[in-house]
């Protein structure tokens, strides 16, 4: 006779695999959360149980224009990360190419990468005004340093023998970049792009929250102000969802670029 667990859960879920591991972890986390909240171990007001959070999602769609906020934040992050990627790769290329600049400024970029740039938001507010430009600019500035650093690192570490191979085949400068330097450093550059995306998202949502303008940050601020705590958590879930979407997209882009290089 089979053990009774097999009747409760499908076999694939019990067999150790990454999908079931994720599912089980999340289920466990939600269960602990639910119990802790319902049993009063955590303040039910500050941390409502999941069973109260999930039903409010529908409310967010009907009463709060969740779709609009989500799209807005997604778009702003996309623009900021895109600009950051472009500028960051150019900057990284320059620091790689110009030895003096590389030696002089790389440490600065590393220091900026670690600084809480979001605190500069008043400056951006003064320059761009209380609008989407401020948010995108803030996100771009935050996403630049990791892309610059990782692009430089990737290019610096291209093995010189690969460049020599290109030289012996008479590659033009542009071919050297396109056919050797770029593909060889792509995996490292992508690490930078992913970090840049995370930095952009954090700053976009953060600035939306701080200046109370558009998107998920504003939505979270509003829900908090109205003590719609369950709704606030639901909105935070959607921010996490945005980040998952972006990770999925970069992963697709990376596989596509790696196979096309």
């Amino acid at each position: 006779m089979p053990p009774f667990e097999e009747n409760l859960m499908p076999a694939w879920l019990l067999k150790p695999n990454p999908i079931s591991a994720r599912f089980l972890f999340l289920a466990g986390l939600l269960a602990v959360w639910e119990i802790a909240s319902v049993a009063g171990l955590m303040s039910r007001f500050i941390v409502p149980p999941p069973s109260e959070i999930f039903p409010t999602i529908a409310l967010l769609f009907t009463d709060y224009d969740l779709t609009g906020s989500f799209l807005r934040t997604f778009g702003e992050t996309f623009a900021a990360a895109g600009l950051g990627a472009l500028g960051g790769m150019l900057g990284g290329w320059w620091l790689h190419h110009n030895r003096v600049a590389g030696k002089a400024y790389t440490d600065w970029v590393a220091a900026i990468a670690a600084a809480p740039l979001v605190l500069l938001f008043p400056l951006f507010l003064v320059i761009f005004g209380r609008n989407a430009a401020t948010i995108v600019a803030m996100g771009t500035v935050a996403s630049l340093p990791p892309v610059v650093l990782k692009t430089k690192e990737g290019l610096d570490n291209v093995r010189s023998v690969l460049v020599d191979v290109g030289r012996t085949f008479g590659l033009t400068r542009w071919q050297q970049v396109k056919m050797i330097m770029f593909p060889a450093s792509l995996p490292t550059i992508f690490t930078g792009l992913r970090l840049g995306l995370v930095f952009a998202l954090i700053n976009v949502v953060g600035v939306e929250y701080l200046i109370g303008f558009g998107g998920m940050g504003l939505l979270i601020a509003e829900l908090g102000d109205r003590f719609e705590i369950a709704g606030m958590y639901a909105a935070i879930l959607f921010v996490i969802l945005t980040s998952i979407c972006f990770f999925y997209l970069t992963e697709k882009l990376e596989t596509w670029l790696l196979s096309a290089r």
């Binding site: 093995r159 023998v161 690969l162 020599d164 191979v165 030289r167 012996t168 085949f169 008479g170 050797i180 593909p183 060889a184």
Partner: peptide, 15 residues
């Protein structure tokens, strides 16, 4: 460098 002279290197050089 010129196309009529080809080189094979000691180091790993495949892409």
């Amino acid at each position: 460098c010129q196309p009529s002279i080809g080189m094979v290197f000691q180091e790993e050089s495949t892409f």
